[in-house]
């Protein structure tokens, strides 16, 4: 099962990297005379209302649909792991300030903040990705901190401190590997959340410019074509769901596998 999931995600990555080259047509090429049309030999998934090839846009859009969530996941994981370790290990005023800040951040309606930031204040798509990385971080900080609290009391951590190792080395060389199962699964969950949220933003028409090949934007742009060429909006939904589900299940499997490896 894990192999299948990894294979699916690997395929998605390959498409994200080389999708534009695999596309049978120019994903931006319009054919207004053709307009929206169902699947045919020339257009396997039909065309949208501007006569653009749906399959080509799906392939070319994979990069945009997957790259940004990966960046969010990397940003979220890096931030939350560092800050969670710091709070859980150092405790004291650092922990107190950080946890109250986390409490405040968790209480904020993330999607609404994003909509205001990107839609109303006019930030670009890059800002929404950065904001999403920051907004996803508090929950993960709390998880990492609680795990760090448990790990720091274990004998191996106590031994490291007794040897006089500096805190940074204890945190990142000794505690972090033991948090790896959670960190990895959290990263994948952040990826999934970002994938769905960014698709949601695109669906709301906030973020990427019209015409950009992107799965979320395709759902929004083509939702009125359900009667005429359902593939134009259903296909990106299926792909988003497939990638999100695969990443979630793979995260579960990786957590189990890495956890069985035991603590060092």
């Amino acid at each position: 099962m894990r192999g299948v999931l990894a294979g699916l995600l690997g395929l998605a990555v390959l498409v994200a990297l080389f999708g534009s080259h695999l596309a049978p047509h120019d994903p931006a090429a319009q054919d207004l005379a053709l307009g929206v049309a169902g699947p045919s030999a020339a257009h396997w998934l039909g065309t949208d209302d501007l006569g653009r090839d749906v399959l080509s846009r799906l392939l070319a859009g994979a990069g945009s649909a997957l790259l940004w969530p990966v960046l969010v996941a990397v940003g979220t994981t890096t931030l939350s792991t560092s800050l969670g370790l710091l709070a859980g290990y150092r405790l004291g005023w650092i922990d107190a300030i950080m946890m109250r800040t986390v409490d405040l951040a968790i209480a904020m309606p993330g999607m609404l903040v994003l909509i205001v930031l990107v839609g109303v204040l006019g930030g670009g798509y890059g800002w929404s990705v950065l904001a999403m990385a920051v907004l996803f971080t508090p929950g993960d900080i709390r998880v990492i901190r609680s795990l760090t609290l448990a790990q720091r009391e274990l004998a191996y951590a106590e031994a490291a401190r007794t040897l006089g190792l500096p805190p940074r080395r204890v945190m990142f060389r000794h505690l972090l590997p033991n948090l790896a199962p959670t960190v990895v699964s959290n990263a994948l969950l952040s990826f999934v959340a970002a994938l769905v949220s960014l698709a949601g933003l695109s669906f709301l028409g906030i973020g990427l410019p019209a015409g950009t090949p992107d799965w979320g934007l395709m759902v929004e742009e083509n939702r009125d074509l359900l009667d005429l060429n359902p593939w134009a909006s259903v296909a990106p939904v299926v792909l988003i769901t497939l990638v999100a589900t695969s990443a979630t299940l793979l995260g579960d499997r990786l957590f189990d596998t890495l956890s069985k490896g035991g603590a060092r």
């Binding site: 839609g119 109303v120 006019g122 973020g207 410019p209 019209a210």
Partner: peptide, 8 residues
Amino acid sequence: MEPSPGDK
């Protein structure tokens, strides 16, 4: 192309 919410 620069997208913007309708009201804005």
